[in-house]
Write a protein that binds this DNA or RNA. Structure first.
Length: 227
DNA sequence: GCGACAG
DNA sequence: ATCTTGTCGC
């Protein structure tokens, strides 16, 4: 399955309108198959931004060894960057490339962790939510900084968290994934609740700030990794 | 009109 | 995101 170009090649005005419509199709309740594999997705750039590099890492979920998980596959896909970064429209810039990497996997995951927001977005369609709808898979967004929403200060202990609000609506959580380090923003994308999202993120947390799937994908997408 | 603003 | 060296701390 490849993405119709017109779905991603939209003017900001149209892209925002589409986000509002697509968000209505999100399922914010748990609908996950037994988790055997978890995928981590992230995007990087090369050539001064001209090339978009998508990375996906497939990990085998094993509660006996977690948070140490075996890497089953890791794919990289490159393509010309199609649009600049515009706050709130990240999915239109990153998802096409991410799909390219995803299509190379020989095994489909039951859960996907994405570097970015889930529903913690002005129109409730961050990159993780958008990707979840497209793949029809449960997704969780783990962002390193805030895009939208308000929250109280988070405790300093590992595992402490506070709700992220958009008015009275809870759109995510600010989680202290590691003591003494800036917290991460966790929000459900599709087919999962915030509570379940937090559970999975914490279960995949090693001694680092980011959960293993996202941490490994981040490394693979960055130029820091091999080339 | 003035900020804020995932990656 | 990316451009970039060394440096402080567990």
């Amino acid at each position: 399955m490849s993405a119709p170009l017109h779905e991603w090649n939209l003017a900001p005005r149209e892209a925002r309108a589409l986000q509002t419509q697509l968000a209505k199709g999100l399922e914010l309740s748990d609908r996950l198959a037994p988790v055997k594999h978890i995928a981590g997705v992230d995007i990087g750039f090369e050539d001064g931004g001209e090339t978009t590099r998508a990375a996906v890492v497939l990990l085998e979920w094993d509660p006996a060894t977690a948070p140490s998980l075996n890497v089953v596959e890791q794919m990289v896909h490159r393509e010309p960057t199609r649009m600049p970064y515009i706050p709130g429209l990240l999915s239109f810039r990153e998802i096409p490339a991410a799909l390219g990497a995803f299509e190379k996997l020989s095994v489909s995951p039951e859960l996907v962790m994405v570097d970015g927001q889930g529903i913690a977005h002005p129109r409730r369609l961050g990159v993780a939510a958008h990707l979840g709808l497209w793949l029809d898979l449960p997704t969780i967004g783990i962002a390193k900084s805030r895009l939208y929403g308000k929250h109280a200060e988070v405790g300093e202990q590992r595992g402490d968290w506070v709700p992220l609000y958009a008015g009275q609506e809870t759109i995510g959580a600010v989680l202290r994934s590691r003591a003494k380090v800036k917290p991460v923003y966790v929000s459900p994308g599709h087919r999962i609740t915030l509570e379940t999202s937090l559970n999975w993120v914490m279960r995949c947390l090693g001694r680092t700030k980011l959960p293993e799937p996202t941490r490994l994908a981040d490394r693979l997408a960055s130029r820091r990794d091999q080339r």
